[in-house]
């Protein structure tokens, strides 16, 4: 049971790192990234290939971060002066491109067979039976570092400029902020974080194949960010824990509904994710947790009115 929990928490941690990236790109800057699964795969495969070539896990992580950062910067550059819808379409397309390349370039990625035997960091230095715990600790450390760095960034002049651009990019531009450069930088920074997440995914799994990077992953990350309250990094961490609890909980559906086969159960899970995304956007656009506290304060007061107020306060 404990090892199961460690496994789940490790997955939560990786989703949370992706969430931090999306929170930076979308939550703070309004730049939608529908290609998270693709960028994540790009990071994971880059790290795996570099690692398998014997360069070591640190170099592999840096390489993954760099490649994803550059890829995000390029995608952001293409949609430079266009509205965010175009960026969303481009990222979705980019995700598809990565998926197709990974599937078809078998000389490099072994196609759907995947890449096995990816070396792990500090493997051999730690007793094997304790490794999972150490790895989880490492992920925790990465999250903490990223979390503190992002919070610090937000309070820096750069962070203020980002928020100014989000509020109104025309006004920000008249104040002398180079909006275009700023947006590309933020998006690239998000890419770097996604790359790091990809690298850790490879190290954790030691075996990667294209099925691990389906579009549903993108939905998970969006759910985590929305549930946690956009632009709130601490809410995000709660959001991804809650999300994982729900997703893992639905795995036990199997025991209750044994009339459904595996495909149907996974379909049910994905329907629930989709519905969750929709319902959150409609009823809790500012996240679950901000509202949760409010509820404790005043328990049974006009729930309907509260939801109306919610809607007027939206993005």
């Amino acid at each position: 049971m404990v090892s199961y929990l460690v496994t789940i928490l490790s997955l939560v941690a990786i989703i949370s790192i992706l969430g931090l990236a999306l929170n930076l790109q979308w939550g703070l800057c309004g730049m939608v990234n529908f290609g998270i699964a693709g960028f994540f795969a790009l990071g994971a495969y880059t790290a795996a290939l570099v690692d398998l070539a014997g360069a070591g896990t640190l170099v592999a992580t840096v390489a993954a971060a760099a490649v994803c950062g550059i890829a995000c910067a390029l995608v952001a550059l293409v949609s430079l002066r266009l509205s965010d819808e175009y960026l969303a379409i481009l990222t979705l397309g980019f995700g598809e491109v990565v998926r197709l390349v990974v599937l078809n370039e078998e000389w490099l990625t072994h196609g759907s067979l995947g890449l096995p035997g990816i070396p792990r960091p500090f493997w051999g230095l730690i007793p094997e039976e304790q490794y999972e715990y150490w790895f989880l600790g490492m992920l925790g450390g990465v999250i903490l570092l990223l979390f503190l760095a992002l919070e610090k960034l937000l309070r820096s002049p750069f962070g203020r400029a980002i928020r100014a651009v989000r509020e109104d990019d025309v006004v920000a531009a008249t104040l002398g902020k180079d909006v275009v450069k700023l947006r590309v930088k933020v998006f690239a920074l998000g890419g770097v974080i996604i790359g790091i997440a990809g690298a850790f995914h490879s190290f954790y799994m030691t075996y990667i194949d294209p099925s691990q990077f389906s579009a549903i992953l993108t939905a998970y990350v969006f759910m985590a960010v929305i549930a946690g309250g956009r632009a709130s990094n601490s809410g995000l961490l709660l959001g991804s824990v809650g999300l994982m609890a729900v997703i893992e909980g639905t795995r036990f559906l199997k025991d209750i509904f044994n009339i459904f086969d595996a495909t149907q159960l996974s379909a049910i899970r994905l329907i629930l994710i989709g519905l969750g995304l929709i319902l959150l956007l409609i009823f809790r656009p500012q996240g679950c947790f901000a509202e949760y506290r409010l509820k404790i304060k005043k328990p049974e007061k006009e729930p309907r009115k509260a939801s109306v107020q919610t809607e007027t306060r939206t993005t």
Partner: peptide
């Protein structure tokens, strides 16, 4: 905003596709 709508349309997409899969 348009962004909220398009994120939502992604959710709708998952629901529809997986009803078919189910």
């Amino acid at each position: 905003t348009a962004i909220t709508l398009l994120v939502c349309s992604m959710g709708v997409s998952f629901v529809l596709e997986n009803i078919a899969r189910f």
